[in-house]
Each structure stands twice: as C-alpha cells, then as structure tokens.
Design a binder for these strands. Structure first.
Length: 174
DNA sequence: GAAGAGTTGTACT
DNA sequence: AGTACAACTCTTC
C-alpha cells in the first residue's frame, strides 16, 4: 500500500464489427483504451497491447460498449458518448479536449482551434492536436470529426486517415 | 498557393 | 527542471 499507484483491474474484449475487429480495454471507471477497426483481432489487440497485458477477457463487462460500437460501425446513429471513459491518466487539458471532441455532433466537423478554445486556450491548437494524437479512445472520442482550420484532413497517424474519411463520409451521408 | 515564424501542451531525460 | 517533439494556426512572399 506504499504506492499510491492504484492498479485497477482491467478487462478487455474483442469483437467483430462491420468495419473490422475492435478491441476495448476498460476498468471500473470506464474504457481506458480502445482500438480502431482492424482487419484481424490480433492487430486490434496489438493496438492495446500495453493495456491488455495483465487484463482479463471479460466480454460481459463491455457488452454495452460492444453493442454501441458495433452499431456505429454498421452506420447506426448511436451515441458513443454513452460509453464511459476513464481519462484519469491524462492531464486536464487532454480531458477537456476529449470532452469537447465528444461534444461535436455527428456529421459536423470542428477545427483544432475550436477544440483548443474549448479546452482553455485558442492558441493551444497544437496541444489539442496532440491530445487527439495521444487519444487512446479511438472511436469513443470522434477525433475524426476534427479537421484543420482550412478543412484539410490532417494527421491521423497514417493508417487511420482512410478510416477517418470513411467515417466522415458515412456520417455526412447520413 | 507555398513557406516560415509563433504559441501552447505533453513526454522524456 | 530543462529539452525535444507534435494530428496547428496565422502572417507574409
């Protein structure tokens, strides 16, 4: 008990969606880490590998999250913000940025500047971008709805860019 | 349209 | 505590 590092019991789950396999890792407070839809469950798990290490496979604990994410990937207008997320490991700025990002309605896009302003400082657009970059909650935080001020689809780590475009198209077409 | 400078925040050493 | 890095935005050529 000397350490104040409270290791909460983590549980993970992997399931197949219309877009691919998604892995979720969560604790008592909510989802701690989530992966993007991948071609194979192995890849999805690899995305959350640092968290899965030591976690227990408990699909029952993420039954609602699985249902929501599955519906979302199928094109259903579900509200992913219903899924509880645990951002205790992140800084207040990140938390605010993610919260603001979840506040963006489906089909709409906001700029990093807007996100930064919601988080506290409009000048912190770069920091806001980093908040999205370090976002561990993938689909749960609609970071794909955040674009640059000029409207260009920036960043998204490469492999996520096509997915971002696809998600935007799906939401916009809806 | 393209290039360069400026600011803020996080992570690592 | 200081340094390095980042998915930005704005001003100027």
């Amino acid at each position: 008990m000397a350490k104040k590092n409270q290791k909460i019991p983590l549980t993970y789950d992997v399931f197949d969606t219309d877009m691919g396999w998604v892995a979720l890792v969560g604790g008592d407070q909510g989802i701690v880490r989530a992966s993007l839809p991948e071609s194979t469950p192995e890849t999805a798990l690899d995305f959350v590998q640092p968290e899965v290490n030591g976690a227990t496979h408990s699909p029952e604990d993420h039954i609602d999250a699985r249902m929501l994410v599955t519906a979302y990937c199928a094109g259903e207008p579900v509200d992913l913000s219903d899924i509880p997320i645990d951002t205790r490991t992140a800084t207040p700025f990140f938390r605010s940025a993610w919260d603001a990002c979840r506040s963006i309605p489906a089909g709409e896009t906001r700029s990093y500047g807007w996100l930064a302003e919601q988080a506290g400082n409009v000048r912190a657009a770069r920091g806001a971008g980093q908040a999205m970059a370090r976002n561990k909650l993938a689909l749960l935080v609609p970071c794909h709805r955040v674009v640059s001020s000029t409207g260009a689809l920036h960043g998204f780590g490469g492999a996520g860019l096509p997915l971002k475009s696809r998600l935007l198209s799906m939401e916009s077409d809806r």
